[in-house]
Amino acid sequence: MPIFLTQTLAILQKDLKTEWRTRERLSAMAFFALLIVIIFNFIYEPGSPIIKTVAPGIFWIATAFAGLLGLSRSFAIEQQNDCLMGLRLTPADPGAIFLGKMLGNTLTMLILQALILPTLVIFLNLQIAQALPRLILPILLGTLGFATIGTLFSAMSLNTRLREAFLPLLTLPIFIPALLAAIESFRAVLEGSEITDWLVLSSAFVALYIAACLLLFEYVLED
């Protein structure tokens, strides 16, 4: 196995293990997402048909906001006991550290989404059982895109005076095109229409930003 991949998997394994031992991040994220889904129900008339058209938006807002909550901890936990310094001192490639962290965040967010979808079915009376297979790819691409830029900015925002609170200010403007693609393709799947254009957009977004972040992460980690 190439050394880069081994390093990536080691970081990923470390992150998943620490998360699994406490499940601190995931439970906070899931609770926050549930709150968002429920609060959105108060904005619209109960049972109004608008809810069907805004459901994809609610899903992605819940994912993105709860995701930001999780992402902000992604590097904050490394600050305890100077773990970030430890990571820097390992012979691991900065790109591998980034990729491992990013994949860990993606997996956490995918678990989160698996929890959000049923709440949408329950609270918004959304029928998604049939559309589910076609939903997987756009959701996966949207989540990968979000985790990619979110992980990069998570490491950056820690050094600002606002610390983790600065993360959304950097992540959200950059995420808008991918968010648009994610919401529109979700809606198109529910309506049964074509989503190829949106998939091309989100795949290109993911590919370009993963490449850019692999190259640029070195400069973020540097001290």
Partner: peptide, 8 residues
């Protein structure tokens, strides 16, 4: 990306 997304 913004250009393409907003166009679509």
């Amino acid at each position: 990306f913004i250009h393409y997304a907003t166009k679509l």
